[in-house]
Write a protein that binds this DNA or RNA. Structure first.
Lengths: 203, 203
DNA sequence: CGATGGTAACTTACCCAAGAGTCATATAAC
DNA sequence: GTTATATGACTCTTGGGTAAGTTACCATCG
């Protein structure tokens, strides 16, 4: 007898991994890497800490797996937009619409990629940067197009504008997290109104 | 005898506090609250940890003191702009110019106020939020004006637009930190070019 | 002028809690 | 009975916070 909770619960590894990644992504995205504890993730999944380590190796490994899965989701969608014909601000708006729709039930996911508390040293640095950069590169591509249309091809200008664009998306996502009652559709309508307020018309 | 380093070094409390705040602000602003250790700040100032605690009470107290000093600097400048006659985007650009000039030697300072790793519970929460909100309120005022000019007075729209505006400033500051060779003047010229690229003219 | 004592400016050496990571073991399922 | 799934009970490091003591300075008293 003894340990009443030991032994398998009949949950296959892949199912359990998926569940752990769901919980971990939410924690990492909501509180950041540093403020997330593996024990809390385990508790959230209703399992013990060693199982998490058994499946993901380390806290960084867990974070990396979250990035992997989330990054694929985000980048695939952004690539779909990129493959379309929209350019400039139009492409930006389509990207926003896609992101709102995609992340409606996972608003925290975006913040995973812009976490300043993620480890900046050690072997995980490269891997983390790679995933974060994949989204950045897609943004860069769109911004380069936009700037070229306006006759500006300065590399630093494009770099700064990309940073600003990502900052805009970031702040919209943060605002959305703080306003849970807003639907994806309402967010998109709001963005169109904000754009109209800036440009003085309704494009 | 014994402890060769004990005893006063003849540095008055106020001088020492100022020095500690300089170091601490840079650490907090660069690495965030969670990733900053009091021991590192003390080492940076060439003193021991207990002296920091003796002067500031706790890590949160130290952070609060940084916010106090930095917030006064930032808010005073933003209030100076607010008192002027510029409105809308013009006011935004003037604020940017003032911030670039003010923060040229302290680019990390801005990030102090938007640190997601700052403690979200405990007694310091209110105090910290109060300082962060002071800047937010000034931004809100400017954005409200801008939106009103465009005929939009929806509270949520204004709230979201304020968030976006702060996000833009945030990303510009981050970009600036990553490009140390750029002067305040170059940053401002760049912003004007980015604005021109968006609006298709040079206002 | 030198002794005395108070105080401000410091430090060493420690405590303690939180959290990353590990080991040996247990049980359900097949 | 073998294996994948699982856990209780550790260890070890990091970092916030503290207790107690040390040294320099300065005023006052003889």
């Amino acid at each position: 007898m003894a340990r009443p909770n030991a032994g398998t619960k009949g949950v296959p590894r892949l199912d359990r991994e998926t569940q752990i990644l769901d919980i971990a992504s939410e924690h990492f995205g909501t509180h950041g890497f540093a403020a997330t504890s593996v024990a809390a993730v385990a508790a959230g999944a209703g399992i013990s800490k060693p199982l998490v380590y058994s499946y993901f190796g380390s806290k960084e490994g867990l974070y990396e797996a979250c990035l992997e899965r989330g990054g694929a989701l985000l980048a695939d969608e952004m690539e779909r937009i990129a493959a379309g014909e929209a350019v400039g601000i139009e492409r930006g708006m389509q990207t926003l619409a896609a992101l709102f729709s995609l992340l409606e039930e996972r608003r925290y996911l975006w913040r995973l990629f812009f976490d300043t508390t993620a480890p900046t040293d050690g072997p995980a640095r490269d891997s983390i940067a790679r995933h974060a950069d994949r989204i950045g590169r897609l943004a860069d591509e769109g911004v380069t197009e936009l700037m070229a249309l306006a006759g500006n091809t300065d590399a630093l200008d494009v770099s700064a504008m990309t940073s600003v664009w990502l900052g805009i998306v970031d702040s919209l996502m943060n605002w959305w997290v703080e306003h849970p009652d807003q639907t994806a559709d309402q967010m998109m309508q709001r963005c169109l109104r904000l754009l109209a307020a800036l440009f003085g018309d309704t494009p």
